[in-house]
Design a protein around this nucleic acid. Structure first.
Lengths: 209, 209
DNA sequence: AAATTACATGAAGGATCCCTCAGATTCTGG
DNA sequence: CCAGAATCTGAGGGATCCTTCATGTAATTT
């Protein structure tokens, strides 16, 4: 558990010319490609550079180390996800808790399903990285949005919104991930999704909201 | 035939003398310790051997490569987990689906919570390993037991037991994992667990079982 | 007690890979 | 067109680490 001295994970330098902007984008895309084809263990700096069509030195001008590549990828993905969740929460203000929960399922599910292989690769990459701080920040941000949404729901009466929020988000996020881990067909996926919604609905009704 | 993996993962040799049995046990325990203290990235063969108090060469007499160490650990853990789930399923035969589901929550939760750090380390280790086959085999084994349990429940009427099983197990396993991923306190954990049970119960009642 | 088998050792081969740096090339403002 | 800034190059230093094997010691069998 004694974590080593914090290695820099932030980009080293921001491109100013369009040439280097293209380069950085190519590096991002190459990182994804290598991650998908060779996995986290097969992700090497030379491999990424080669795939991106640049030299290793160029890569190291924008990323301080190998980790930062995957870190940046996760950051991008999580930020987009957070924005989408926040948008959904804003849109669902004033609706019932059940409707809000179902919308959350849809949004989260859609975001994860759009690029399934990338989602899976990132899920895995997180395990080998010092992304705890990043994940905590993301969780806090999203929790704030969803808690707020549940608080302002038309039928909200429970004294503790955080409790409802914790349960619903844990179940939803966990179920989505687990659904990914299994190799499932289309109709099974669809069944799971509607089943998950039904569970949320049934629970909320039973609880009296 | 089972497709031959690029790298062998099975133990190379089984101890016959008590001396070597002690050695192998020490290696297992050392692997756990190093995994907990240094993480997957810091797990080195020399590190494990040193911690176990044996030489690297000795280690390589029983394990063909580094991966096989963690693979064996996962295999052990999953086998134990499967046995416990099967025991619960056997015990819950003839009870209601809701009771069966709640018992499953308890069993799974308990198994994962007994050694939280190890559980977390293994969750992470899986990402860097070729454990897909192992996990699939485990999933199939456990699914068989739980599906059977639900089929023979006293109040089972639905035409498709597999569907109910898939939903319940996905939600339960996923939620447990997600609960682990967040850093939660005791009372939050307890709340989540009872909330998860309530959700299962509410869903089953709503569905009409 | 000799022979055979099981087990243990750890230095070193060999392979991989991260990251740097000195120097070349391209761009941009004046 | 030119000076300086931005960008790019890629061979190689340096470090890590997996794995083997020749050699030695203990246990078991004959």
């Amino acid at each position: 558990m004694p974590t080593q001295p914090l290695t820099a994970l932030k980009p080293r330098k921001t491109p100013s010319q369009s040439r280097s902007r293209v380069t950085v984008d190519a590096i991002y895309e190459a990182t994804i490609q290598v991650l998908l084809s060779r996995g986290m263990a097969g992700l090497t700096t030379t491999g990424v550079a080669e795939r991106a069509g640049v030299s290793v030195g160029t890569m190291y001008q924008y990323f301080p180390n190998k980790q930062s590549l995957v870190y940046a990828l996760n950051e991008r993905f999580l930020t987009t996800l957070a924005e989408r969740v926040e948008a959904t929460c804003a849109q669902m203000q004033g609706r019932s808790i059940a409707e809000a929960a179902e919308a959350l399922v849809d949004t989260y599910w859609a975001a994860k399903t759009e690029r399934p292989e990338l989602t899976r690769a990132l899920y895995r990459s997180v395990a080998e990285l010092e992304t705890d701080a990043l994940l905590r920040a993301f969780a806090a941000r999203v929790d704030k949005a969803t808690t707020d949404m549940f608080c302002r729901a038309s039928d909200f009466r429970s004294p503790d919104a955080g409790e409802v929020n914790l349960l619903l988000t844990t179940v939803i996020y966990g179920s989505v991930r687990n659904a990914f881990e299994r190799g499932l067909g289309q109709e099974e996926i669809a069944g799971l999704k509607s089943g998950l919604k039904a569970m949320c609905r049934a629970y909320l009704e039973a609880v009296g909201n």
